[in-house]
Amino acid sequence: MIADILTVIWKERRSLFRHHGSRLRAIFSLVVPIAVFGILLPWQEGSGWIEGFWSIITCVFIPLLLVGTIIPESFAGERERHTLETLLSSRLPDQAILFGKIIVAIIYGWGMTLIVLLLGLIIANATGWEGQIILFPPIIALADVVVSLLLAAIMASLGVFISLKSATVQGATQMLMATTLFPILILGISFTFIFSMKGDLSQRIKNALESLDQTQAVLITIAVLFVICSCLFWAAAVRFKRQKLIGS
């Protein structure tokens, strides 16, 4: 099984920046988030980028954007380019195909997030130099590493599920982005609305958020994301079966 997964990883890694024959387009889609989250924001915010929640925002958006681009190419792309049937007619077990593809997407999304964080750390330190190197607070560092990993895994599992129901890469990408960005958008609008409100309820929510223990909040978030990730991964594994893929 391990050898089969490594075979799929070998192929996925070679295909990573070559989908649709445009390596330039793929690299461009990678450069933009790196430039915004790893250079521009740390440059503007300086040490505030390290000590505040900017790195968490980076850890949310980078895996979503990168894995959200890779996974539809990897799964819906196989269907769209008519390579899935041939792959399924080979001796590879279903799980090896699934795990191999998901692992590459997660490593790519998570790895790039960590690189962006490191780049941001260097730039924030360089632009806001205060005589010593400033590092992420331990709980933020933990949140950055674990949340980005879990979000990459969630995005990959959800992406598999959506890709298998989509006939095209474009359709899968749009559906995946809408499914993941919609809750974030709703959350953002809700907070904006609450903070702009005047009155007792708004004040109570603000107080509750301010009094929230940072460590507890991070651990609860990680636990919730872990449960979501496990459920989605299980659903993707159940869905990714030859009989269902060919018979559907």
């Binding site: 192929k11 295909s15 989908h19 024959g21 008519h82 390579t83 049937e85 041939t86 007619s89 001796r91």
Partner: peptide
């Protein structure tokens, strides 16, 4: 499947490789 080969309706090749 381990003992067979198949060329199905489409060539099933990876054009980016």
């Amino acid at each position: 499947r381990a003992l067979s080969g198949a060329l199905l309706e489409y060539p099933g090749l990876y054009e980016q490789l």
